[in-house]
Design a protein around this nucleic acid. Structure first.
Length: 1007
RNA sequence: GCCCAGGUGGCGGAAUUGGUAGACGCGCUGGACUUAAAAUCCAGUGAUCAGCAACGGUCGUGCCGGUUCAACUCCGGCCCCGGGUACCA
């Protein structure tokens, strides 16, 4: 073999490791540069080809910066707490710490094979107690602080207590859950418990009632994506919305700063836009409406107080605390029915179904303080409890949703802004003059808002208000595999664990399931209480807890005295370049910014924004395979006789095999007949409840969109599947039975034994993101069967890491999503071989010559240096790979392998393909690693052109090309064009109206 | 639904500021070398019409319309696909 990538890559990976080439320390002699990747969650499926995409990009950038003389911090670690490990633990009984450890080992092995320049001495793992000590520590700081709107920062809770003792709430302007008013005397008269409850109202980490997806059958809270159509995805159990006490972080206090901070950072506009929308600043007013026949006031928030004369009814979220109290006896039953229905739907479903108008009158009315009319109070799905105050004044003439609602229920519509046609639809625009509105008539909306706000404040019924959609982050998870809260409860009041007792380590449990009482798994732990016998919190922290400040730990990872030392923080400051997926836009990237701002308020970090520049790598999409089944509803004994005449229910119901024996089975349908099966169902009773369901199955069970390895499918289904699985094909059916090790070989039952042909069971392919949850991951390296034989050959083994690195970059623009497809990989590999051959000739002897390069050769080299440099700076790595290919093709054509050309070429290639570059660098006689070389500068003088081959167009259409010297005048060009024989045809005897000449670009003749 | 991104040959993509659409690579077709294969090299390759020929014509960047000497690029409207939508990470 000429280019022996295997030997080269192993050799240099070993060398880099032994010489600690990538270890960095604080070095005030060099400018720092901090390049960070979003660290991976080590799933059991291993690293897939999507992960390295961003890592390769950041590695190229890191190596480039290093070649430019920067001291580059480029660390890596693992986001190791999370749901999948816990699910696996539930299924197998293995401790998640153990499986996580194994997964990390596998990830590390895979990462090492790709030749990244990570400084592994700085590795962090979020599940390591030495690490989560600081996650817990930060949480305690949030518990011990409150947000003062006057100083606009977090302040110690002690200050607040002092103020309560002196003046009560009089001078307090705090971010809090509920506005409280009490005097100093009242404060002092409160019991300890009452005082602690009040403080929770102010703490940045606080306990509050929030809505969760509760699954009674599983005894646990589910994530939204674990719920579909009101049922749990696993097991199909009903899920309801339930109120539960949960830890929350008062991120809403930081909404304004999170919004303004966006203007100071170099992120893509689209990402900033997403965060701006997520934060959702809106200026408006809070207004109280009296509720008729009660002494209650209904507080609403509106951005359009100018339309208050058009407010003809009110709508509350079905969960609004007033609903029970105000509903009249006549409507109790209907309201309760409606609320029960709502409870079954997640918030996302409620938002998604705006076209289905529904709601319920409560029987109560409110008083519109401006029109002096009584207006009805309704409840409806489209008002969400978490937004604003959970109540709106509906202005059907000027809000589309209110309009649809009013039309549907026959509620009055009053036009108050001229300019639309309210018989046709709502006029939502603010461009119009106010009418039918007494005191603000004739004003444009903008002025009307000012005037009506003044009036509202004068009347004492409300005030101007800036509202943010950003909600406080719910910080409790009813799970085991996460950071324990350093909190114990005394008399139901939470108290912080003393900092010197951190970390509070996760306790062992017998099984990773909720207790019978429905407590989180930690409820099973023995002695889960402090030295005084007070019980610890049973929930754990969510996934984003550990990832919110990890970039700070990398600066000083072994410090057990501080989260990060001042020295390290002041040198490394913040992340200069952060690369990761756009799917984190509104999760991690907001939480981390919040977390950092909080630490900034405490003076612990010197930069207010953690990530200066951010690039989103696009997702690598893969092909997933879906299997078809039918919703479980239909209970009947059905003999399997023919494919179409009978439909089997899916689920654990009785079905008979062809011998008439009852079997306990689930049934799947081949994709080519699934629709037909569903159609056949239509004549059956209960057909409305029948639905086709499709779900992802592991792609390793499939081949060419066919389920081909039934045994591994059955193993994957595991305990979620009944004993038998029936796979119905057009020409027969397969029956597989048993669990795990006791799965029978597949049995094929053709419908017509004489015509025993295919038995192909088709699945439906779809292109979607590579993800463990989609079961479609493709690893970059070999995967092995249990017996040690190769299951699938990886790219690294087949082509080498340098090829993988360059190919992933070659796939397309970094930021765009692209499907994974190995078709083009040969071309990239060929390029590296070509480079090798350029330096080694046909005989594979290193043969680089010492001659002086020609002008032409220097031009190619400097053109490439310039291009590569610009491309790296623009993160346009796909075009760099093309440029390298063109360059090597050109030198091959010129048979140029001069040292003065090859040496700089190898340096600029080294960020992309470090192994081959290091090898060639070494062969060129260099003793030090190429990592310590200097990135060459290009010389503009070599790039100058004397002539330009102009495209000549007539009326914008290119007709011919013409080589002209650079720098000649437009008149000369015009003359040459007019005389040119090819021009005659297009001028057709006419005189040109106009010449457009862009020097060095184009000539256009307008005829 | 809402927010964000994207749509260019058979495929991945290029065209960085409105200036030659299809760079580079894959695939495919034909050829050279070879006993043969692999490897390597050479030529062709958007569609279509016409032709003995060619620096031939026309069309062509999701769809419809607009601005401009000139539009993949800018503007308006629509369609499709992907991500997120607050407990997947």
């Amino acid at each position: 073999m000429d280019y022996n990538f295997k030997a080269i890559e192993e050799k240099w990976q070993k060398y880099w490791k032994e010489k600690e080439i990538y270890k960095v320390d604080i070095d005030h002699g060099k400018p720092k540069f901090y390049v960070l990747d979003m660290f991976p969650y080590p799933s059991g499926a291993g690293l897939h080809v999507g992960h390295p995409l961003g890592y390769i990009a950041s590695d190229i950038y890191s190596r480039f910066k290093r070649l430019q003389g920067f001291n580059v911090l480029h660390p890596m670690g693992f986001d190791a707490f999370g749901l999948p490990a816990e699910q696996y633990a539930i299924q197998t009984g293995q401790h998640p710490a153990l499986t996580t450890e194994n997964n990390i080992k596998r990830y590390r092995e895979q990462l090492d094979k790709i030749g990244f320049s990570f400084d592994w001495s700085r590795e962090v793992r979020t599940c390591d107690p030495k690490y989560y000590k600081w996650t817990q520590w930060a949480f305690l700081q949030m518990f011990r602080h409150w947000y003062d709107n006057k100083t606009n920062k977090a302040e110690p809770i002690g200050n607040l207590i002092d103020e309560f003792e002196k003046n009560g709430t009089k001078n307090i302007d705090a971010s809090c859950t509920e506005q409280l008013i009490f005097s100093a005397a009242e404060w002092k008269n409160k019991s300890e418990k009452e005082q602690q409850e009040i403080l929770l109202n102010y703490r940045i980490a606080y306990l509050a009632d929030t809505m969760v997806n509760w699954c009674p059958a599983l005894g646990t809270v589910l994530a939204n994506d674990e719920v579909k159509d009101g049922f749990s995805v696993r097991g199909g159990h009903p899920v309801v919305q339930k109120e539960m006490k949960q830890w929350s972080l008062r991120i809403s206090a930081y909404a304004g700063r999170l919004l303004n901070g966006l203007d100071t950072i170099d992120w893509t506009e689209s990402l900033k836009e997403m965060q701006r929308f997520w934060i959702g600043r809106s200026e408006g007013a809070e207004i109280n409406f009296d509720i008729i026949n009660t002494n209650k006031k209904l507080l609403i928030f509106t951005t359009r107080p100018d339309t208050i004369y058009g407010a003809t009814f009110m709508v509350l979220a079905p969960e609004h605390e007033y609903v029970d109290e105000i509903t009249t006896s006549e409507y109790k039953k209907d309201v309760n029915t409606y609320r029960e229905e709502t409870k079954k739907r997640t918030e996302r479903e409620r938002m998604a179904e705006v076209k289905k108008i529904n709601g319920q009158f409560t029987g109560a009315c409110a008083f519109n303080p401006f029109t002096k009319q009584n207006i009805q109070i309704w409840i409806s799905d489209y008002v969400l409890a978490g937004y604003g105050t959970g109540a709106i004044m509906a202005v059907p003439a000027h809000d589309s949703r209110d309009y649809a609602f009013a039309k549907h229920f026959g509620l009055p519509i009053t036009e108050v802004i001229a300019g639309g046609d309210i018989s046709q639809g709502a006029f939502d625009s603010k461009d119009g003059v106010v009418i039918n509105s007494e005191i603000i008539n004739g004003l444009v909306a903008k002025d009307a808002i000012v005037k009506i706000n003044d009036e509202i404040e004068k009347m004492g019924i409300g005030k101007r208000k800036i509202n943010y959609r950003l909600r406080d982050a719910i910080f409790s998870r009813q799970r085991y595999w996460g950071e324990p809260f350093p909190i114990y409860f005394k008399d139901e009041i939470p108290y912080p664990v003393d900092e010197k007792n951190l970390p509070l380590e996760l306790s062992e449990v017998d099984v990773y399931l909720p207790t019978e009482k429905g407590e989180p798994p930690l409820g099973r732990a023995k002695n889960w209480k402090n030295a005084d016998g007070y019980p610890y919190e049973l929930s754990t922290m969510p996934g984003f807890a550990g990832s919110s400040a990890y970039y700070l730990r990398y600066m000083d990872p072994h410090n057990d005295k501080e989260l990060v030392s001042k020295k390290a923080d002041e040198y490394w400051r913040n992340v200069d370049l952060y690369i990761g997926g756009a799917e984190h836009a509104t999760g991690h990237l907001i939480y981390a910014r919040f977390w950092n701002k909080f630490l900034f308020d405490l003076g612990l970090v010197c930069e207010e924004e953690p990530f200066k520049k951010l690039i989103n790598q696009g997702m690598i999409l893969g092909v997933s395979e879906l299997i078809h089944s039918i919703t479980p509803y239909f209970l009947k004994d059905q003999p399997i006789t023919t494919t179409y005449n009978y439909i089997w229910c899916n689920g654990i119901y009785e079905i008979k095999d062809k011998n008439g024996n009852k079997i306990d089975a689930e049934v799947y349908y081949s994709a080519d007949m699934a629709d037909e099966v569903l159609t056949n169902l239509n004549h059956l009773e209960d057909k409305d409840k029948t639905k086709m369901i499709k779900f992802n199955i592991p792609i390793y069970c499939t081949q060419d969109h066919t389920l081909f390895d039934f045994i591994s499918f059955k193993k994957w289904r595991g305990n979620f599947s009944p004993t038998y699985s029936v796979f119905v094909c057009k020409d027969g059916y397969w029956i597989i039975s048993g669990y795990n090790d006791k799965i029978t070989k597949e049995n094929w039952y053709p419908l017509n034994p004489k015509n025993n042909n295919s038995g192909n069971f088709f699945t439906t392919p779809i292109v979607e993101k590579l993800s463990k949850s989609k079961l479609n991951v493709i690893p970059p390296d070999n995967t092995y069967n249990e017996d040690g034989s190769i299951k699938q050959e990886g790219i690294i083994e087949k082509y080498g890491a340098d090829t993988l690195r360059m190919y992933e970059m070659f796939l397309g623009p970094l930021e765009q999503a692209k499907p994974w497809d190995t078709n083009g990989i040969e071309g990239v590999h060929k390029f590296l071989r070509k480079l090798w051959r350029l330096c080694h000739g046909k005989e594979n002897n290193f043969s680089v010559s010492d001659g002086e390069p020609t002008k032409e050769e220097l031009k190619i080299l400097h053109k490439t240096i310039k291009k590569i440099r610009e491309d790296i700076e623009n993160f346009s790595f796909n075009t760099s790979v093309s440029a390298f290919m063109i360059c090597v093709n050109e030198f091959t054509d010129l048979k140029c392998s001069k040292k003065k050309i090859i040496e700089p070429l190898v340096i600029i290639l080294s960020p992309f393909a470090p192994h081959i570059a290091e090898e060639l660098w070494n062969q060129l006689g260099n003793k030090e690693s190429i990592c310590n070389a200097k990135f060459p500068e290009y010389d503009e003088n070599y790039l100058k052109e004397n002539t330009f081959n102009y495209p000549v167009s007539f009326n914008g259409k290119t007709r011919y090309n013409l080589e002209l010297p650079m720098g000649i005048s437009n008149e000369e060009i015009q003359d040459t064009i007019l005389k040119h024989e090819l021009s005659q045809k297009w001028l057709d005897g006419k005189t040109p109206k106009k010449f457009i000449i862009v020097a060095g670009k184009i000539i256009n003749v307008v005829v």
